[in-house]
Simulated scan of single mutants.
Amino acid sequence: MSTLRGHRAVSLIGAGLLVAAAVHHGAEIGAIGSSAGPLLAFALDGGIAVAVLVAGRRIARRDLSPAEEQRVARWIATGTVLAVAAFAATLAVRAFEGRPLVEPAFPMLVAAGVGSLGGAIAGYYAVRQSAEARRARDAVRAVSFVNHLLRHDLRNDLSTIRGYADLLDDPDGSGHAETVAAKASEGLERIEATSAVADAILGDADSSRVDLADTTRDVLAGVADGESAAIETDLPDAAPVAANDGVRSIVHNLVENAVEHGGPGVTVRVAVRADGDEAARLGGDDGVALVVEDDGPGLPPEVRDGSFLTDEAVGGASDGGVSGLRLVATLAEAYDGSLDTGESSLGGARFTVTLPHAPADSAGSDT
């Protein structure tokens, strides 16, 4: 069953107040035989009701999420109830004192309208403040992750470039120029991926069509060049997902985590499953799954208990692998995916990232 959108609920409250005011003052005109007073009163309480209707229209144009609209509607309902209850309490006191209650309907309508309008204004600014605070938190997270990527990944690439550049002066330095050029290209790719990571975390990037299988092959080609690890792969020809270039950081961090924590001679198995079976096994929707497992010592305690997902795990003093896993979890969530951890059939750790399939008509490249 569909839920009533918040702006429609606001408009219904405004329309209800307007109809109630029109009916009440129309009856007044018939009772007293004069229209001047009732019309003046209707201009006040009816005008407030129209203002509530306008607030509903403005909320509809503010591009708020359904949850945010519902929050504004709750503020309006609360304001209306509180204002009516406060006025009803004054009437109860007057009745208890034995004082006459003269035409309470009109001030009751004014109180309800003022409460609704005040609730609309307060609710809108509360939602906007909450959104700005959430965006500020996301910005801090993005800066922390970008700082981690730049310090960790680019430092490694630039150290390699510097080392091979020193060897170019040797008489037998043939081939080192190609290594320098390759590492420089990898550094540039990391800068582009870092920008995509920040956009994804901040919600500024539109999802496009990215081939997860091809990205995985590209990342593994760089890992196999210099790591003392046995890499096993099970990759389909193509596995398009709805994401951006930040997917490269997901693959890189999971593989790097397995290699670094698995120890010398670790076996790392990397698979991409595009048939949705892995996502279904994890209880999620149909999607594309990236599975990275190893025969190392298994899941560290901070990963097993989920503490690596806390804000403290992002700081510069935290373990690089834990920060990398936090980045993976954050990016997976930004892409409407998920990260699952468990024990590997190889005896070590197993990490599964599930990402949504890219629509067939989505923009981007599968290669």
Rank of each mutant, 00 (worst) to 15 (best):
E302T: 08
A334G: 15
G47S: 10
R74W: 11
A196Q: 10
G173R: 14
P300R: 02
G316V: 15
P264T: 01
D366Y: 08
I250K: 00
L40M: 14
V84Y: 14
L299V: 06
V180S: 01
L4V: 03
D237K: 08
D277W: 11
V114T: 13
A334P: 09
E178P: 01
R141I: 04
D138R: 13
D237S: 05
E97K: 09
G324L: 05
V353N: 01
A184F: 02
V314F: 03
P107F: 06
L149K: 03
A95H: 15
N156A: 15
T341F: 15
A363C: 14
V143P: 04
E192M: 07
A229M: 11
A221M: 07
T78F: 10
N244C: 02
L109G: 00
S207G: 07
H152W: 02
S174W: 12
T194A: 14
G47L: 10
K183F: 15
R326V: 14
G46C: 09
S208W: 12
F106Y: 11
E227P: 00
L109A: 02
L309P: 05
V93C: 05
A165D: 05
L64N: 06
L158E: 11
D138N: 03
R190V: 13
H152E: 11
I231V: 00
D157H: 11
L167Q: 08
A243C: 09
V54A: 07
M108A: 07
A83F: 13
T160C: 12
G47R: 15
A313C: 12
A238D: 13
G203D: 07
D169V: 05
N253I: 03
L101S: 05
V328S: 10
D311G: 09
A332E: 00
D138H: 11
G46F: 12
L149V: 10
A88H: 02
P240E: 11
A329E: 02
R217S: 08
H252S: 03
R217N: 13
A77T: 04
G203A: 14
A224D: 12
V10K: 01
N253Q: 11
R269C: 14
V288R: 03
T367Y: 12
G119F: 06
L91N: 02
D286I: 06
H152I: 12
A73I: 03
Y335W: 13
R350E: 15
L282E: 03
A27K: 00
G316F: 14
A334V: 12
T330H: 02
S195V: 12
T354M: 05
A242Q: 01
A122N: 13
A133F: 01
F87C: 14
V270F: 01
G187F: 13
S345I: 15
V50I: 09
G113R: 00
